[in-house]
């Protein structure tokens, strides 16, 4: 349980740092040159973190809704015709670099949070959609047969059998999306979105390593926490539906 202890410490450190960054100034002072400020004060780190997380949460929630709905659609009889196309588009789509997607969204959306949100949404669709497809199509035939034999309607089968069984994989897709979005949102600052990337970019522009490190540290810690949180949730769900792997 050392891992859990470390995670707890990470949460405490992150909260303390965000609530009172100035108390950690001594920690970052060695990274600055010529008496430059050690802590970014242009905008409060807490508000940047919240708007960063808000942007990611909004984008990932939207991509989850759309991706799962599309995944269900192409695995129903009415949408089967789209399945080969959907598979190819997701695998090809994931080769699109997130930064390029972000840059291409600017001409359509202008600067600010808009293009970042669109890029995060579009890019987040793919892992969730891919995992939803895998989850819905790779189910053991005995289970679906049993559900059919019990006289369940297609709608009942979807809600009570297929989706719950696919849920751990869907969640894994959401986790992947969230972690990618968290990192990509940093780059959103280059198009004037309010995210923690602002701190890093300020550090790059004024060659103040302390800013770069504190921006990176907060995003990195958030990524680890989100990753671990989702993984714990997936594990719990897997155990509940009897798919536990160790």
């Amino acid at each position: 349980m050392i891992a859990r202890l470390l995670l707890g410490l990470a949460v405490l450190f992150l909260l303390a740092f965000l609530i009172s960054p100035d108390s950690f100034a001594g920690l970052f002072q060695p990274l600055t040159k010529n008496n430059a400020p050690a802590i970014y004060t242009q905008t409060s780190l807490l508000s940047l973190t919240l708007s960063h997380l808000g942007l990611v949460a909004l984008a990932v929630a939207a991509s989850t809704l759309v991706a799962v709905a599309l995944g269900v659609l192409v695995t129903r009889p009415a949408g089967r015709e789209f399945l080969p196309l959907a598979r190819t588009v997701t695998s090809v789509g994931q080769t699109f670099p997130p930064v390029a997607v972000l840059a291409l969204a600017v001409p359509m959306m202008g600067f600010g949070a808009g293009p970042t949100l669109v890029a995060l949404f579009l890019y987040g669709l793919l892992p969730i959609f891919e995992n939803t497809l895998t989850g819905l199509t790779n189910q053991r035939p005995e289970v679906t047969e049993a559900a059919r034999a019990m006289g369940m309607t297609p709608r009942q089968r979807l809600w009570q059998v297929e989706l719950p069984l696919a849920m751990p994989l869907i969640l894994a897709g959401v986790r992947l999306s969230a972690v990618i979005s968290l990192a990509t949102a940093t780059i959103g600052s280059t198009v004037a979105a309010k995210t923690l990337g602002e701190v890093i970019i300020a550090g790059l522009l004024s060659s103040n390593t302390a800013f770069v490190v504190q921006g990176g540290l907060v995003v990195g810690l958030l990524a680890i926490l989100i990753y671990e949180g989702f993984q714990a949730l997936e594990g719990r769900l897997s155990r509940r539906i009897g798919l536990a792997q160790g």
Binding site: L31, I200, T209, V212, G216, V219, G220
Partner: peptide
């Protein structure tokens, strides 16, 4: 795995100094 979680922008920035 931890290396992977550092946002690219920050990792690039840390390499410079």
């Amino acid at each position: 795995n931890i290396l992977q979680t550092i946002p690219s922008l920050a990792l690039f920035g840390i390499m410079i100094p």
